[in-house]
Simulated assay, not measured.
Amino acid sequence: MSSPCDPQHAPAGDVGAALMMVDSRLKAIYGGEMVADPEEQALTAQFTAGWGHRELDDMLDGACTLIYMYMQWLRQAYEEHEEDVLAVVVPYLVGTLRMMTKSVPPETIPTMAGLLVAAGSGLSPSLWRKQYGYWTDGEMNPLEATAFLLAEHINRITNDRAFATRLVTEALPDD
Rank of each mutant, 00 (worst) to 15 (best):
T146N: 01
R25E: 10
E79K: 14
P7M: 01
N159T: 07
S2F: 09
L115D: 00
P173G: 08
D137F: 14
P173T: 12
D23S: 14
E83G: 05
T111V: 15
I109N: 08
G120Y: 04
R166V: 01
R75V: 03
E39F: 09
M69E: 07
I154G: 02
N155G: 06
L116A: 04
D23Y: 05
G95D: 07
V89F: 01
R98L: 15
Y92M: 07
L115V: 00
E40R: 12
G62D: 09
N155Q: 04
G32W: 13
E82M: 09
G13D: 08
M20N: 10
A87G: 03
T165N: 02
T101P: 00
E139W: 05
P91L: 09
V15G: 01
F148M: 11
I67S: 01
A36W: 07
D14A: 09
R129Q: 13
D160I: 05
L66H: 08
I29L: 06
R129C: 07
A147P: 00
R75P: 00
M1P: 10
M69F: 02
M34G: 15
G120H: 07
A164K: 07
E107F: 15
G16K: 13
Y132W: 14
A164E: 03
D37W: 02
V35L: 12
A17L: 13
P110Q: 09
